[in-house]
Design a protein around this nucleic acid. Sequence first.
DNA 1: TAATTTTGTTAGAATACTCTAACTCCATAC
DNA 2: GTATGGAGTTAGAGTATTCTAACAAAATTA
Lengths: 220, 220
Amino acid sequence: MASVTEENYLKALFILVSERGMATISDLSSLLKVSLPTANSMIKNLKKQDLVNYEKYKPLSLTEKGKREAALVLRKHRLTEMFLVTQMGFGWEVVHEIAEQIEHIDSSIFFERMDELMGHPTIDPHGSPIPDKDGRIAEEVYEQLSSCKVGDKVRLIALAHSAADFLKYLNNRDLQLGVEMKVISVEPFDGSMVVSYSNHSSETLTHPVCERLRVELLEH
Amino acid sequence: MASVTEENYLKALFILVSERGMATISDLSSLLKVSLPTANSMIKNLKKQDLVNYEKYKPLSLTEKGKREAALVLRKHRLTEMFLVTQMGFGWEVVHEIAEQIEHIDSSIFFERMDELMGHPTIDPHGSPIPDKDGRIAEEVYEQLSSCKVGDKVRLIALAHSAADFLKYLNNRDLQLGVEMKVISVEPFDGSMVVSYSNHSSETLTHPVCERLRVELLEH
DNA sequence: TAATTTTGTTAGAATACTCTAACTCCATAC
DNA sequence: GTATGGAGTTAGAGTATTCTAACAAAATTA
């Protein structure tokens, strides 16, 4: 079985590829905060195990085997996050850190019991899909809030990132998954948006925020 | 902070010393299933960090600092075992394996929340005391069943070991913590005992089993 | 296209943990 | 009291993961 380090590389690769369509060694190196040669040699190692496709100077991808391994780690991560929120009462802004560690626990009964206790959830507390036991994962087909137009009514479905700072920012504005929002105006210069929702009649969100909010279009 | 490996050495040392009064490098080596030279060099490393007292060819002990570190790992282990049993519905025979991994998670809020959700338990599912946040641990003052005499009435309070095989053996005989037992007879030859409890009127327990059952004397 | 910057690679080394082989110390048995 | 066996030690090496330094390839910019 893959080591903790290897699992982290596979997971990072999986996330990079699903977010940007591709990944390079320097993407990995900066995401995992290791030097370029370190990432380089780990990639060679993973290639040898038939977990990544790799040719010198070419972009990286996961093999089927690698995808499956990565998705199973992601499954453990997201089940854990959901467990921490729904069963242990943690806020969504703290669970990522803990789940980063628990995702490497090697115990199928532990995660199966979590899954069972929660009634087999399909998304984590940030709206990301939880892969199934075979490593299959639902496509994320949501739009970014930043691509919406003035007048659009949308529902907040998921977040593209789950850094604590970002989640606290949302907490401070009462922005939770499921909230229905209306786009009041869009600033062409910097892409910031003014939106209304619940009892917030006019909240300004900067472009980096709007990019990370994934929404379902209700009407426009 | 101590690495996972270091934590395992400290915990092993703590348990050996509290069970046998002392520990040697070969005790450690066999408990942790590493070679003697491996244990030897790790002990030198721990001595350098002022976690163990060690002089060449002499028995080992933990420094105050080492005891505290070890007790905090044990706290995480035992809180986890209790959580797995009381909050997640696992049997006491499977929790040790999972707790062996979770005890190394570095997150005080995680374990504090466990503790809180369970109402600050003082013992784990096998009757062993849970050290407090400062690493203080209650003395275990119980007797071994093996030291009891014919006619003694006792209550099962704790187990000296928690290997799955042993716990399944107890499960098969409906032996749980709290059960009141009476010593019917003792076989001088091999130290095995016949006891009665609940709806078991005559159950034979071998000496290794009786040694591992910790009891409180009710009357004799 | 030539120059520059970014990205990727190789070489060589450090740290943590592990091992086997070979030797030494020490307690105990005769 | 010496021989012997178990316990402890040292030396030397291997694996996994990481780094820096130096160089090469590819992409971008001028």
